Amino acid sequence: MAQALTDLSRQTGCLVQYDPQLVQSYRGRAVEGRLTTADALVQLVKGTGLEVHTDKDKFSVNQADQHAIGDKAATLQAQLGQAMQTKKLPQNKTTALHIELGAVRTSVVEFAKKQGFVSAAEKASYQRTFTKVEQLLASVK
């Protein structure tokens, strides 16, 4: 993958930032056709679990969205568990939200692997789930 990212960067003239240690165990897919740099990167990493990030003419490949979303979901799961232990929340409500947050943690990894990125719509959906849980937790403090 590192060589493929370097080659793509050289061919397009666009810098692609990545951590060589992160990408070393992945193999890139073949990139064919006339594509934008962003589309070529997505095609290259699709199926690996790596994510393409673009910001104007800056490109990076990492797993930042998966880590951020997964960490947030895990933190909220822990807070729900604490609220349930202290009897601030009923077990059935806590369990349902815990399962919903677990689904977030699973789906973000699946989307990144399937698509090569996590879309803005998916991030917004995850944020709605986080907000719902945060509001509930705030109401019992």
Results as ranks from 00 to 15, higher is better:
108 V>E: 05
119 S>R: 11
22 L>M: 07
84 M>A: 15
12 T>L: 03
64 A>S: 13
102 G>D: 11
112 A>T: 03
99 I>S: 15
81 G>Q: 09
97 L>R: 15
84 M>L: 12
13 G>L: 01
57 D>W: 02
126 Y>L: 10
89 L>Q: 11
114 K>H: 14
52 V>Y: 00
37 T>W: 04
120 A>V: 13
6 T>I: 08
6 T>G: 00
81 G>D: 08
76 L>W: 08
89 L>P: 10
107 S>K: 14
9 S>Y: 05
128 R>L: 13
100 E>P: 03
23 V>C: 08
92 N>Q: 10
53 H>Q: 10
79 Q>F: 02
40 A>E: 02
123 K>F: 06
50 L>T: 00
88 K>P: 07
60 S>R: 14
129 T>P: 06
124 A>Q: 14
108 V>W: 06
15 L>F: 08
2 A>N: 09
103 A>T: 09
48 T>F: 00
126 Y>P: 05
38 A>M: 04
37 T>C: 13
127 Q>D: 12
96 A>M: 13
101 L>F: 12
11 Q>K: 15
58 K>R: 14
82 Q>A: 11
70 G>K: 03
111 F>T: 10
6 T>K: 14
99 I>M: 12
120 A>I: 10
140 V>H: 13
111 F>G: 01
57 D>F: 05
85 Q>T: 12
99 I>K: 14
64 A>P: 01
133 V>L: 05
37 T>N: 08
16 V>W: 01
110 E>S: 14
75 T>F: 13
131 T>L: 11
126 Y>A: 12
41 L>C: 07
76 L>H: 07
95 T>C: 09
71 D>W: 07
45 V>P: 00
76 L>D: 02
27 R>T: 03
99 I>P: 03
88 K>Q: 14
30 A>K: 00
49 G>L: 01
93 K>F: 11
107 S>V: 06
95 T>V: 12
83 A>I: 08
95 T>F: 12
34 R>K: 12
131 T>N: 15
101 L>M: 11
132 K>W: 06
73 A>N: 04
84 M>W: 10
20 P>D: 07
140 V>N: 09
98 H>A: 09
71 D>F: 12
59 F>I: 01
30 A>M: 02
141 K>P: 02
2 A>L: 01
40 A>W: 03
58 K>V: 03
51 E>F: 02
21 Q>Y: 08
93 K>D: 08
8 L>D: 02
94 T>A: 15
52 V>C: 01
53 H>E: 07
7 D>G: 06
42 V>F: 00
83 A>Q: 12
35 L>H: 09
56 K>W: 02
60 S>V: 02
81 G>T: 11
3 Q>F: 04
48 T>A: 00
18 Y>M: 03
94 T>P: 06
13 G>A: 07
129 T>F: 12
67 H>Y: 06
90 P>L: 13
92 N>C: 03
61 V>A: 05
99 I>A: 15
74 A>M: 07
115 Q>I: 04
95 T>G: 12
45 V>D: 00
61 V>D: 00
9 S>I: 05
40 A>S: 08
114 K>Y: 09
28 G>P: 10
99 I>L: 13
67 H>A: 11
74 A>N: 10
55 D>C: 07
30 A>F: 00
55 D>Q: 09
28 G>H: 02
91 Q>C: 11
85 Q>R: 15
132 K>F: 11
21 Q>S: 11
124 A>F: 09
43 Q>I: 04
102 G>V: 10
81 G>F: 04
133 V>Q: 05
28 G>A: 15
54 T>R: 13
39 D>G: 07
